[in-house]
Each structure stands twice: as C-alpha cells, then as structure tokens.
Amino acid sequence: MSDWVLAALPQLAFAVPGMLLYVLGISLCLARRRSLGVASTYASLGFGLLLLGALLGAGAQLWLGWMVQDGHAGSSLSMRMTAMGIVRTVVSLTGTIALLAAILARRPAPDA
C-alpha cells in the first residue's frame, strides 16, 4: 500500500462514525416513511447529502495524497482542493437545510 494511503487512513477512520450515523438516519427515515410523511423524504435527502459530503471529504484526502505523490504543481493543487472544499460545503449545507425542512414539515399547524 502506498505511503499516502497509509497516512490518510487515520483521518478517514475519524469519518466512519459520522458516516454510519448518516446511514442509520437514512434507514430510520425509510423505515418510518408512512408515519413521517413528507418529512421522511426531506430527512432521507438530508442524511444522504451529508453522507455524500463526508464521502467527498474522505475522497479529497485520498485525492490530495495521490496528487502530491504524482508531483502536481502547488498552484493547481491548491485550486483543485479549494474547488473540492466548496463543493463539499455546498453539499453538506444543502443536506442540513433538508434536515431543517424535515423538522419543520412535521410541526403541527398553529391553532388559529
């Protein structure tokens, strides 16, 4: 195994518990789909996007190691990692907004 993969493994290990929680969240939302209604759809989407964001972060770590090992220029490396960070942030933020929408979708209508 390459040195850069071995160096990235401890960082990736820290992402695994969060990813497992996102998978558990998706599973619970899909299992309770009938009782949760539209909130289940929003929550499943939110957990899925958060899982995608975590996978993008883990993938970025591996990609960074591979690019450094192949001797890519620092400026192009910096621009690519910045772009990856922006994409990951937007995906995670959208997932959080979907979870908030799920919470609001389950609120009862206020009594008039």
Score class of each variant (00 low, 15 high):
R33W: 07
G59N: 05
L50K: 06
P17Y: 07
A43E: 02
S76Q: 11
G46H: 05
A109V: 10
V90L: 13
S92H: 03
R106Y: 10
T41G: 13
H72Q: 14
L45S: 08
L64V: 01
T89Y: 10
F47M: 00
I97S: 01
S76I: 09
Y42K: 05
L49S: 01
R34L: 03
L20I: 11
G65A: 09
T96R: 02
A101G: 05
L30E: 11
L77Q: 04
G74A: 14
G25F: 01
R80W: 11
A83E: 11
G48A: 06
G85K: 01
W63Q: 07
V68G: 07
V38N: 05
L45P: 04
L64G: 00
G25R: 03
A39K: 04
L64I: 09
R34I: 00
A101W: 09
W63C: 08
M67T: 09
Q69G: 12
L93M: 08
Y42M: 11
L52R: 02
G53N: 07
S44Q: 01
L50T: 03
G48P: 02
I86G: 03
L20T: 05
C29A: 08
L52C: 00
Q69L: 11
D3N: 15
Q69E: 15
D70L: 15
T96S: 04
I103Y: 11
S2A: 15
A39H: 09
L45A: 10
L9Y: 07
W66M: 08
T96Q: 04
R80K: 06
I103L: 14
V23A: 15
G95E: 05
L104T: 13
G57A: 00
I26W: 04
I103R: 12
T41A: 13
A102Y: 01
Q11C: 12
V87W: 07
R32M: 03
V87C: 12
M79D: 13
Q69Y: 13
G37K: 02
L100H: 07
A101Q: 14
L55P: 01
A7R: 14
D3R: 14
V38K: 08
L93F: 11
D70M: 14
Q69S: 15
A43S: 10
A39M: 08
M67D: 11
R107W: 10
G53E: 03
L56S: 01
L104D: 12
R107A: 13
A105S: 14
L99E: 01
G95I: 01
S75K: 00
V5L: 11
R34V: 07
G53I: 05
A58C: 03
S75D: 14
D111A: 13
R88Y: 03
L52F: 00
L56Y: 02
T41D: 11
P108M: 06
A101V: 10
S76H: 09
L100V: 13
L12W: 05
L24R: 14
R32V: 06
L36T: 05
T89L: 15
A98Y: 09
R33F: 06
L77T: 07
G18S: 06
H72G: 10
A83D: 12
A54Y: 10
A73T: 10
I26C: 05
M67A: 15
G65P: 10
L49Q: 07
L21D: 10
